[in-house]
């Protein structure tokens, strides 16, 4: 599924302002459009995207009085809607990933993070992603969702 298709799907289902999101991130840029592919396999999505911040061991880290949260042994991930919401909406310094990952990739990587770095083996499905993305506001526990 191409990025555009996913964008359109989310724009239609979740009402996210994806065009604006992309424009707001434009800032300084190399010029031109890259064709970087992200894997569909959960572990590889983690390595290609998540570990940039959460680290290869999923332990996060920090130093300036602020930290990147650990995903390993994180009881907040027991409830699968919580990390789904983070990927859909972002939180704090973490951006949303609706314009970078497909629902399939989100489901795959969340299944991996919950199963591999935690003991929550039940898989996250695309249906879960869709369910949370179409849930009526206000959604639970989300500091970035406004007011």
């Amino acid at each position: 599924m191409s990025v555009r298709t996913v964008s359109q799907m989310f724009a239609a289902t979740a009402g996210l302002a994806l065009v604006a999101a992309v424009a707001a991130r434009a800032q300084d840029a190399p010029g031109g459009v890259t064709t970087v592919q992200v894997s569909d396999e959960g572990r590889e999505v983690y390595e290609q995207i998540c570990q940039a911040c959460h680290m290869a061991d999923a332990r996060g880290g920090g130093g300036a009085g602020a930290a990147i949260p650990a995903l390993a042994d994180n009881p907040k991930l027991a409830e699968k809607d919580y990390p789904i919401m983070l990927l859909l909406k972002g939180r704090g310094g973490m951006p949303w990933f609706t314009d970078m990952l497909t629902p399939e990739q989100m489901a795959a990587v969340l299944t991996y993070v919950r199963g591999h770095f935690n003991a929550y083996p039940d898989p996250v499905t695309v249906a879960d992603i869709t369910r949370v993305s179409t849930a009526p506001p206000p959604v639970r526990e989300c500091d970035t969702c406004g007011k």
Binding site: Q27, C53, G65, A66, G92, G93, M94, T144, G146
Partner: peptide, 27 residues
């Protein structure tokens, strides 16, 4: 930066705290 300030104990209004937490950073 908001990435750091949103995690520091700061005495400002709830609306400003919400604003700080609504600012993801690019990579």
């Amino acid at each position: 930066p908001a990435t750091i300030l949103s995690q520091i104990d700061i005495q400002v209004s709830d609306t400003k705290k919400a604003a700080l937490k609504a600012l993801p950073y690019s990579n």
